[in-house]
Structures are given as C-alpha cells and as structure tokens.
Amino acid sequence: MVRLPGGLPFPETAAEARRLIPDLAARVETADRIGEVGIIGGADASSTRFDPERAVHAAMVSLDARSLQVIGQAGAATVGGLPYVPGLLGFREVPALAEAWVRLVPKPDLILMDGHGIAHPKGFGIACLLGLVLDVPTIGVAKSILVGEVEGELPDVPGAFAPLAWKGRRIGTALRTRRGAKPLYISTGHRVSLEGALAWVERSLRGRRLPEPTRAAHDAAGALRLSAMGALL
C-alpha cells in the first residue's frame, strides 16, 4: 500500500485529505536539494472525471538528462480512489504514480510532473505530494493557471518568462516555450527552488510546447488509458 510521509495511509475522503494538507505542505522544501542529475523523469496520469470506477492510468518515464532520450518507462492503474475534487488531484492520482515508480527502471534523479507544485490554493499541488511520497526532487509543469496572475509582460518569444504571483508572493513562473503557444506555469514541487525549476524545464525543451519528460509521460499515460478502454470493448 502506498503511504504518506510518516507512514500514514492515503485518505479515503476529501475531508480527510484537506485535514492532512497543512502538515504535508509544511514538509515541502523550496530550496535546491537535488544532487547530480544523470536521469530526468516525467510523470503524468490520465483519467475521466465522471468515471464511476474512478480509474487512474499513470505513467512515469526516465530520460537521459543530456540527450533527453527515453531510457525507461512504466505504468500502473488504480480504481476506487478519491473522486475528482478540485485542489485534491494529487490524492487521486499519486497512488497510481507511486505504483508506476516502483516498476520504473532506471529511477530518475529529478521528476517533472504534469501538474502544479506550490502554485496551488493551499501551496500543495500534485508535484509536491509526489515529491514527498517518493522522496525525490520534483517540479510542477502545468498547462493552465490554478491560482495567481502573471506579473508584467510575457512576449510571444520562446524563452520569455514572467513571475506568477498570488497574494503578494511569487509562487511560480510563466514560461513561453514556443512562439504562438500558450505558456507553461512552472513551480516548485519538492526540493527544488523556483529558479532551479525554471532552469531544469528550459534544459528539457526541444522546440515543442512541453518539455520532453512530461510530453513523453503524457503520451504514455494516454496510451495506457486507451489500451484499457480497448480491452473493455
């Protein structure tokens, strides 16, 4: 069974999850404690909001940090977890991601998670929870804003970035990765600073909107879900 830091089981209700968030959020490290990165990982999960079985199909991939070539991939599926509740996505999807992590070889030194880190109403998005559960540095790479506003101009130029702030505090960075594309919203997950998170995402780009680790994980999670749907037909 996947457990939270301190050996706690995953919550079975949204109310239990909300009670746990303040303590868990206080454990998140927002300074760089990464070490050497030879392998960089990507993580994503795919599910249907109104699925009565609450199935989650999760994928994790490992890439060579220099070439960004995929060198490992694993997936897992869970059913019957928390329903879809805004702000509690991590508690719904991390159990499946953690199962995929167990199967993943080789293990990455740093994970880019498709979702938010501290750029979250409670400062505790899915990238934070994943980092705590796996005890691995994580970065949130989100495709839309959950809370906050972009400060200043964000030119339509690849590499342009601007702070994402909320309640007078910087919680992330809006990054334009491709001309004509919507920006990504980068934030600390665990054991990575905001500056470090931006730098690692920039290093992981190859001319597409998404960095290679989350793009590969997104494709893998979608394929797992489609395969499961096909098996039911």
Rank of each mutant, 00 (worst) to 15 (best):
L210F: 12
G125N: 04
A231R: 15
A76S: 12
E195C: 05
T214C: 13
I71T: 09
A45L: 08
G115M: 04
L4F: 10
L68H: 04
V61C: 10
S47I: 04
P121R: 05
L8H: 14
R92L: 07
R206D: 13
V192D: 10
P108A: 01
G90E: 03
L226D: 15
P52H: 01
D51E: 02
L164T: 08
S62Y: 03
T48D: 15
S187L: 10
L233K: 14
I34F: 05
P183K: 14
D219N: 12
S46T: 07
A77L: 14
L20V: 07
A59K: 02
G189D: 08
S46I: 00
R18G: 02
D135P: 05
A59Y: 01
G123H: 11
A65P: 06
P183E: 09
W101D: 03
S187H: 06
E149N: 15
R209L: 09
E99Y: 10
G90T: 07
L175D: 06
P9G: 12
M113Y: 12
E212W: 13
L110W: 00
L8M: 15
A55H: 08
G80Y: 02
G35A: 04
R179V: 10
T177V: 11
E202N: 04
G38R: 15
V102T: 12
L205C: 06
P106V: 02
L88H: 01
G75M: 00
P106I: 02
F124C: 00
R92Q: 04
D156Y: 03
F91A: 00
F161Y: 13
A216M: 14
F124N: 04
V61P: 00
A142R: 10
W200P: 01
H190S: 11
K182M: 09
G42V: 14
P137W: 08
S67T: 15
E153R: 14
D64V: 08
L110S: 01
L112R: 07
G196K: 05
L132S: 08
H218K: 09
A160G: 09
K143C: 07
A216I: 10
S46D: 03
T48H: 13
L82M: 08
L24V: 12
L194M: 12
G41S: 11
F124I: 11
L82K: 07
R178H: 12
D219R: 15
P83V: 05
K143I: 12
G140L: 13
R206Y: 06
K182F: 05
F124R: 02
F10T: 13
W200K: 03
R3H: 13
A199I: 08
T188R: 03
P155L: 01
E212R: 15
I39S: 08
G87M: 06
L210Y: 11
G90Y: 06
P86I: 11
R66D: 14
L89S: 01
I139K: 07
G172I: 09
S227P: 04
A197V: 08
W200C: 02
V70A: 11
V102I: 03
E12N: 12
I145M: 05
R225I: 00
V61Q: 05
P22A: 01
P52R: 00
A174V: 04
G131V: 11
A142Y: 12
H116G: 11
G125R: 02
L164E: 13
R19E: 15
A217L: 08
P22I: 03
P52K: 00
A45F: 00
G180H: 03
H120F: 02
G38Q: 09
D156I: 04
A220P: 10
K143L: 11
L8W: 14
K122Q: 14
